[in-house]
Design a protein around this nucleic acid. Structure first.
Length: 210
DNA sequence: ACATTAAGTGATT
DNA sequence: AATCACTTAATGT
């Protein structure tokens, strides 16, 4: 596991920190679709992704969920940081987007490391910033009700995460992620296909040019 | 052959 | 953009 850590985080963290992570963290492998965290659940640790990607969903009063952002290798869940500020419950739901390998670090550690390792501190602040920016993006695309742009962004993210130009999903699933109806997604996808940007199949979409 | 699920389309709000 | 109603095609039993 120390090997895998070095490979993905070696350029960020100094050796002593890497060793401490491997000593105190626990390695987890989860299959695609696995729910790692749910709304209202206490946050037991913060995840460092080694392989794969995780989808972060939020939920409104009426149980409508939508994708806020994705995290992949080298990222961590910004929501786990709110533990430091005393909030213990998760406001989000985390679902593995692909088969994923990650290391769970206990919350107590992340706080003390903030003081002792400058690389850790910088990593936390940086990823907090990144996630916040990503969320601002999604928020204003929602605010202006531009579903076509939201869909494009979603496809781009999915293709990026998978490192594959073929996205394995259904129109219905996308509709759920963006909290809209399947019909709307089907129509917009059809439009994108006519523009030559994608190619549609049953249960999958090939990305040509986004 | 039949049921189920994914996707396409027109019309309406 | 959402909803309804209906069709068509692919897949599973």
């Amino acid at each position: 596991m120390i090997e895998a850590l070095k490979q993905n985080y070696g350029y960020l963290f100094e050796p002593p920190l890497l060793e401490e992570i491997s000593r105190v963290g626990q390695l987890k492998k989860v299959p695609e679709g696995f729910q790692l965290m749910d709304i209202g659940e206490p946050i037991k640790g913060m995840p460092l992704i080694l392989e794969g990607a995780i989808k972060i969903l939020g939920e409104d009063e009426k149980c409508n969920e939508l994708v806020l952002y994705f995290i992949e290798r080298g990222d961590t869940c910004a929501m786990a940081l709110s533990c430091c500020v005393g909030l213990a419950k998760s406001e989000i739901r985390a679902v593995a987007e692909t088969d994923t390998v990650l290391v769970m670090v206990p919350v107590e550690k992340m706080e003390s490391w903030m003081a002792t390792y400058k690389s850790w501190r910088q990593f936390i602040l940086q990823s907090y910033h990144d996630r916040l920016m990503e969320m601002l993006d999604t928020i204003d695309s929602i605010a202006f009700l531009k579903m076509d742009e939201r869909l494009l962004r979603h496809l781009r993210d999915k293709a990026m995460i998978t490192h594959d130009d073929v996205i394995h999903t259904t129109h219905q699933d996308i509709a759920r992620d963006l909290n809209t109806s399947r019909v709307v997604i089907s129509r917009l996808l059809k439009k994108l296909e006519n523009q030559g940007k994608i190619q549609l199949f049953r249960n999958s979409i090939r990305v040509i040019d986004l």
